[in-house]
Amino acid sequence: MSLASPKFTRPSLSHSTSDLTHDAVPLQHIDEPTVPSAQLSIKNVTKVFQGKQDLFSKLSRKTSRDFTAIEDITLDIEPNTFVSIIGPSGCGKSTLLNMIAGLSDISSGEIFLNNQPIKGPGPDRGMVFQNYALMPWMSVEENIRFAVETVYPKMPPKQLTRIIKENIQLVGLTGAEKKHPHELSGGMRQRVGIARALAINPQILLMDEPFGALDALTRGFLQSEVERIWEQQRKTVIMITHSIEEALLLSDRIVMMTKGPAAQVNEILEVPFPRPRNRETIDQHPAYHSLKTEMERHLFRETQAVEAARIR
């Protein structure tokens, strides 16, 4: 029902031009009560990894207890926002992302994408993997082609070729189409990973520590590239990260998680910096340092708790 709203946003065109320019603003306000603003809605989600207590495990002395990775997380993500999830190591960030991707089962609670519960993996969510996950036997072009062909099997060849070309161009890899992953640097490989995820035109882009395997210089460079690409496409992005600077540069909102087990959302920070953002000038914004300090303090406290728990 709520999805019928586009009809309301396009009123009869017989209005004068002056009316039309004003239409957009009030109509969005009318929309709000009918269409929930969240594109992705995480409701009371818990993930428990079942331990092994069966007889066979006991005989082979490989029993393990149940492990609650994350507990009762509720989170709404609005369309066209860049959201980072940050937290200490082992807090279940990647588990949460895998559940959104549909790669991992949800123990309890539900995740909705455009009001539809997520039941498994699907091409409405594009995934960028930490270790790129490119097929070594496929060239740059073939890796992207595989993705697009899988999602759109009936796409005419011309359109297919155009989409591949556009996305290679978008990530700045024109000229390297025929190269295989082992001939590329880590940064270039992740560009392919991003191009592959974007080429299928997903509603949401999921990034699991996309720059985690890169050296510091390449990482900075690629972060700026992602910022540039995001300005062009404004896709909803959920990114897992360890880096405070990275989160501040790219995100509209930063979700800070507590330590695991049974990790929860601790706090959500709004990042008010204007876009397009520039890594050299971003720290001149008055809110930059207070945000950074707050995140540092949070991460430090949680990491300390993790370490303390390990000693005990």
């Binding site: 790669l103 498994g120 993996p121 699907g122 091409p123 995934m127 036997w137 993705a147 899988t150």
Partner: peptide
Amino acid sequence: SPEYLDVSKTLGASKLRTIFKIIIPA
């Protein structure tokens, strides 16, 4: 590598396509 299979899953590839395009070449 489970990563290759994850890629295939997130793209919604069929079992046959996964076998011939991912598993056998891998």
